[in-house]
Every structure is written in structure tokens, then in C-alpha cells.
Design a protein around this nucleic acid. Structure first.
Length: 575
RNA sequence: CGGGCCGUAGCGCAGUUUGGUAGCGCGACUGGUUUGGGACCAGUAGGUCGCGAGUUCAAAUCUCGCCGGCCCGACCA
């Protein structure tokens, strides 16, 4: 391919709205062009990158026995009602919806469990037809609350989504493991540094799930891990060994104390010398929303620890929670914010407590009276016993649940997510097959996603320098560029064409930069574009010498023409 | 949805406070000179100043409404 025939429009200045390296470099390199918030055009070079990555995904999924299909983007409301997800997705505002000319409601698919389940249900009637695993590489649409970071969080994006259908949990386990292995091969083939973490299964639901995280400072997810044990989890899901706190001792009588304007744990430590945060139970009020109702709930947490809202949502089986407002707190407790507690709490308010408080004695808590707190509160005696759940946010430095070593923290970009769904969707939608006993059974499903447009952006996060992108060769738009520095000089043109032909013959994905630009501009352009291997034919062409550049580290050397092919193949690891 | 801010040429921005001829850099185009680190000279084109209403002799500038976008937070397969 000749670059003079490809639309390449690099920018000289950084776009004003780009925050993170991948967004900045992809926009400046002309790889992506924004058309609306979170909606991008993929320029020719970027589309080559996406196609290369998609091809790797295809090869590995096909090898794992999955079938590629193409599902519709436009989906009828009824399908989503049948799985029970229409309301949640519409309430959350995450789904683009539209009406057809008859007024029937439709949506642009944010995910395809429903469509795929309906499809497979119509085709598969017997356990003999399974296992089945189908996938597609397709545009997805989500009206994200806050699109940002270029391709990282768009409102239209490309995703591979696969769905496995098995007759039983054993089959699902096999399908899941196959996909997990395929994912590892995919990300390894792209030379990405990634880690697999235990994850919350979120809106998709289901039993178990793991995320594939590309480690990068700009990642939106926080992960905790332990090198000693290999434990790694999204902070939403992570647990840790409970940090020590001073024991409460023998049960004592409760006492109530005036605490004017003392509202926070830190202020209480000041006000009651000797009462450390670990002996307090803070009570935080949340407004929780379910499909058909909403309510304020109270959550007790040891004073030195934090609440994990994702765990809280799961414990309540709610759609969402948020901190209650001052007015809602006053209405639920009768007291101003900062004085809520289990003592004297109305029976109407559901009370949860973190496991860290189970069995603890003589706590310091609020008592739902503005300006007062209680000492030596003993749940079960002085107040209701809360429903104990794991609601705690694990933090770096706390002990790994497996090894006890301090957990470390890193940022990650979620590029893949695999779930064991079980029968959640098949049961809801009545998707069944006949088992060996002739009885209808719901399909046991798994679902598996890879961010096909996000992964190349994540690759840029991991592979760039201050000059530009440094593409990993397997997903680079071209592996090699042969650049003629002066297209007016016959000897340069001739030699560049010769090398270009030779490399093509050798099976290298090579392009010829025959654009009429000054040498300096051409060098800068290629530093920004970031093709892995760059060969420049310049003023020493007549002597049969060219310049050879490895983009990673910008290592340059002069090379005789005869050695070019060998060096290129070696650089690409194909010698 | 809450808080902060922005919208002026393809891109990056000034001009708005204090109303009075719409500017700068980069890019683009033409001609010439250049050709190893985003060249130089000369010239040219390109703007309903986001949209609508209002105030005014006069609005990019003031007022109101709307739309779009960015950042922080909440949110997020």
C-alpha cells in the first residue's frame, strides 16, 4: 500500500479535549475523528488496526470452537421485557431507544444476551446439539453517562460478544475455561501486559466472572493483587484480611453523651479520647432503588473502614444505591446528618452491618438524635441486630485473603470480561432444550466480551512515548514502512520501490511512504504514527545504504540494502 | 443528575470585563526557492462569532431561553 493513496491527516497540535495518551495520540495521528461525544470515525489506518485485532480474536475463538454470526443492532422492546431488563436499562438511561413508524419501541443493542438466547433457543431443541458457542464482532450502543477518553468509553463502540450454551453446569465450566484460555492467547498475541481479576458481575448478572485488565495508569478500574498468592480482584469485588482493631472487652452498660457538632469519625476520635475509629460503628444511610420501589437503608461499618457500594447493591439485590441526602436522613432518623445510628432506629429502616462488626462489643455509635452519641452500644441488646454481610471496601496494604501479604494496588483497563451466567436469561426467557429424560431444561449459559475498539486504545496506553504511538507489531496498521525521503530523486525512488517489493515478497505487511513531504516532516509523522519498523531511503541511496529504525526506543542504524530484509524479519521475530 | 467551565476560520487560541471595521499562530491553496528533523519568500481563500429571542443608533461583547461540548463527582458487561 502506498501512503500517498491513504487518507492520513496528522495534526500538529494536540486536540484540546484529549486527556490520556491514547486519546491524544490517536486523535493527533488522525487515527480517530470525533463526530459527537463518545462517537468516532475510524480513519483508514485505525480501521486496519481494528481489523487486525479482530482477526486475532476470530482466529482464537474459531480455534476454541466458537461460531461467528452477526446479530441485529435494532432490537424490539418485547425481547428486553422478556428478560426483565428493559426497565433497568431504560431507568438507568444507558440504552438508546427509538420508535418505528408504527410507534413500536425498539433499542440499539447495548449487549446481545436476549437476541442470542432467542436465536439459539429457536435453533437448538436437544441436548444433543450442544455445546454451542456463538460470537459476533459488532457495534454496541450505550448512552454512557459520561463518555470520555476517546475510544475507552464511547457511546458507540465495537465489541466482540460470545455466548455459550450448555446442558449443565459442568458443560459451562468447560466452555468458560476454553474461552478463558482463548482470551489469554488473544492478549498475549497482542503483546499486552494484562492481568485476570475476579470481578463483580454487575448488570449482566450471574455466578462468577473475571475481567481481563490491561495494566495502565489511566485505567478506570482499580485492582488489588498479591504477587505471593496470585490473588487479583477488581476493588469492587476484592476482599482482604480484616485489619486489627482494639477489642471492646466485657459488655458494659450503654451511656448517652452530648456531642454537639461532632459528626464524623475523626471528630469523634477527638471528642472521646481513647475511642479509636476501630471501636466505632458508623451508620451510613443510602437511598436504594429496586425495580418496583425505593427505600432508605442504614449500613453499619466499623469506623476505620469504608463501605463498598457495589457489594451493598448486591447484598440488597437492588438496581442502584446512592448516599441519602440530608433531608432523607432527617426523615429516616429524625436527626441531622452525622448522628445516625442503630440505637432507636425506626423499625421501618432496614439495618445492615458489615462482617467486621459481627461479635464486637461496646461500640461507639450515633443514636438518631442531633447532638448525641452513645458509648458501649451492644447490638442485640441496645438496638436491633443488623443483617451482617460483607460490605467492606478492601484497600491496598491490607492482608491478601489467601497469603496474608499486603495487597498491592494498580489501575487497569477492562478489555475483556467473562461470565458464568447460568440460567438467568434462559429461565427468564423460557429458553429450553430437551434433556436426556425428555424434560425441558433451561440452557446453562456463559457470556464473554472483548472491547475490540478499546483494546487497541489500551495497547497505545501501554505502548507510547513522548513522540507518539509505538504499536505492537501484531496490531500495527502496517508492520513496516519504507519511506523515500525525496520522491524527486530517481535513485531513492528506485531503491525504495525495490525494497518495498522485496518485503512484500517476503510476506511482510509493508507500506511505501511516497508522499511528497520534507524529510523532517516525514520523520515526525512516522514517530507519531508509530509503525514498528521504519526504513528510510535517503541521500545514501546511491551507495546502497538506508536508515533502519526500530520505533520502540527509536534505535537507528545505517544498513546496506542487502541486509534490510533480514533485519526487518528479525525485528518482527520471523527470522 | 449535582458542581465547575467552554462554544470566534479545518486545528489551537486572543478579542467579551468597559458594546463601535473579526484577529493571531498552525494548516489549506497559487507561484517561486528549497529537500536529513514538522523549510523560506510572496500572494490567496476561508467566519450566519453554537442557535433563537430581547435591550440598543449599534451586540462576538449585555439579558433570557435553548442546543452542543469539556472537566470533577455520582454512574459504568
Amino acid at each position: 500500500m502506498r501512503l500517498s493513496q491513504i487518507l492520513i491527516a496528522t495534526l500538529r497540535e494536540d486536540p484540546a479535549d484529549a486527556e490520556i495518551p491514547s486519546h491524544r495520540l490517536l486523535a493527533r495521528g488522525g487515527y480517530i475523528v470525533k463526530i459527537a461525544a463518545g462517537v468516532y470515525t475510524f480513519a483508514p489506518l485505525m480501521w486496519r488496526v481494528v481489523r487486525k485485532f479482530a482477526q486475532i480474536v476470530r482466529e482464537e475463538l474459531d480455534r476454541a470452537g466458537a461460531n461467528e454470526v452477526m446479530l441485529p443492532i435494532i432490537q424490539p422492546k418485547e425481547l428486553w421485557v422478556s428478560s426483565g431488563r428493559w426497565d433497568r436499562y431504560v431507568t438507568d438511561g444507558i440504552m438508546f431507544t427509538l420508535k418505528d413508524r408504527k410507534g413500536s419501541e425498539m433499542c440499539l443493542g447495548p449487549t446481545h444476551e436476549e437476541v442470542m438466547t432467542a436465536y439459539v433457543n429457536a435453533q437448538v431443541n436437544s441436548y444433543k446439539q450442544m455445546p454451542v458457542n456463538c460470537y459476533q464482532i459488532q457495534d454496541k450502543f450505550r448512552d454512557e453517562i459520561r463518555p470520555r477518553f476517546g475510544l475507552m468509553r464511547g457511546r458507540e463502540f465495537i465489541m466482540m460478544d460470545a455466548y455459550s450454551f450448555d446442558a449443565d453446569v459442568k458443560g459451562l465450566d468447560v466452555a468458560y475455561q476454553k474461552m478463558r484460555d482463548a482470551y489469554c492467547r488473544i492478549f498475549e498475541r497482542c503483546n499486552l501486559r494484562y492481568t485476570i481479576v475476579q470481578a463483580d458481575s454487575g448488570a449482566i448478572g450471574g455466578a462468577g466472572s473475571e475481567e481481563f485488565m490491561v495494566v495502565a495508569d489511566s485505567g478506570e478500574d482499580s485492582i488489588l493483587f498479591c504477587e505471593a498468592s496470585g490473588y487479583a480482584a477488581n476493588v469492587e469485588k476484592a476482599t482482604s484480611r480484616l485489619p486489627d482493631a482494639p477489642a471492646g472487652g466485657e459488655v458494659r452498660p450503654m451511656s448517652k453523651h452530648g456531642t454537639p457538632n461532632v459528626r464524623t469519625v475523626a471528630q469523634l476520635e477527638q471528642f472521646f479520647p481513647g475511642w479509636q475509629a476501630g471501636r466505632m460503628a458508623k451508620t451510613v444511610l443510602y437511598k436504594a432503588t429496586w425495580k418496583d420501589k425505593e427505600a432508605v437503608v442504614a449500613v453499619m461499618m466499623r469506623g476505620d473502614l469504608e463501605i463498598n457500594e457495589v457489594k451493598l447493591v448486591n447484598a440488597l439485590d437492588a438496581m442502584a444505591v446512592r448516599l441519602a441526602t440530608d433531608d432523607e436522613i432527617k426523615a429516616a432518623t429524625g436527626a441531622d446528618t452525622g448522628f445516625a445510628g442503630p440505637v432507636g432506629l425506626s423499625d421501618k429502616v432496614r439495618l445492615l452491618g458489615d462482617l467486621s462488626l459481627q461479635g464486637r462489643t461496646n461500640l461507639l455509635t450515633g443514636c438518631n438524635e442531633t447532638g448525641f452519641h452513645c458509648l458501649d452500644v451492644n447490638p442485640g441488646r441496645d438496638c436491633r441486630m443488623p443483617e451482617f454481610k460483607d460490605l467492606r471496601l478492601a484497600r491496598a496494604g491490607e492482608g491478601c485473603p489467601v497469603s496474608g501479604q499486603p495487597l498491592q494496588q494498580a489501575r487497569g483497563i477492562e478489555v475483556g470480561h467473562i461470565f458464568k451466567l447460568g440460567t438467568k436469561y434462559s429461565s427468564a426467557m423460557g429458553a429450553t432444550f430437551m434433556d436426556q429424560g425428555g424434560k425441558p431444561q433451561p440452557f446453562v449459559m456463559g457470556c464473554y466480551g472483548i472491547g475490540v475498539s478499546r483494546t487497541p486504545a489500551a495497547a497505545v496506553e501501554q505502548n507510547h512515548d513522548d513522540k507518539g504511538v509505538v504499536w505492537p507489531a501484531p496490531i500495527a496498521p502496517f508492520e513496516v514502512v519504507v519511506g523515500m525521503l525525496d520522491p524527486k530523486k530517481d535513485d531513492q525512488v528506485k531503491l525504495a520501490e525495490q525494497l518495498y517489493g522485496e518485503l512484500q515478497q517476503a510476506g511482510v505487511d509493508v507500506c511505501l511512504d511516497d508522499r511528497p513531504m520534507s524529510p523532517g516532516a516525514k520523520f515526525k509523522d512516522h514517530e507519531l504514527l508509530g509503525l514498528p519498523v521504519q526504513v528510510f531511503v535517503g541521500r545514501r541511496a546511491a551507495e546502497g545504504m538506508v536508515e533502519f529504525l526500530i520505533r520502540k526506543g527509536l534505535q537507528k542504524s545505517e544498513l546496506a540494502v542487502a541486509d534490510v530484509k533480514g533485519r526487518v524479519l528479525a525485528a518482527l521475530g520471523r527470522s
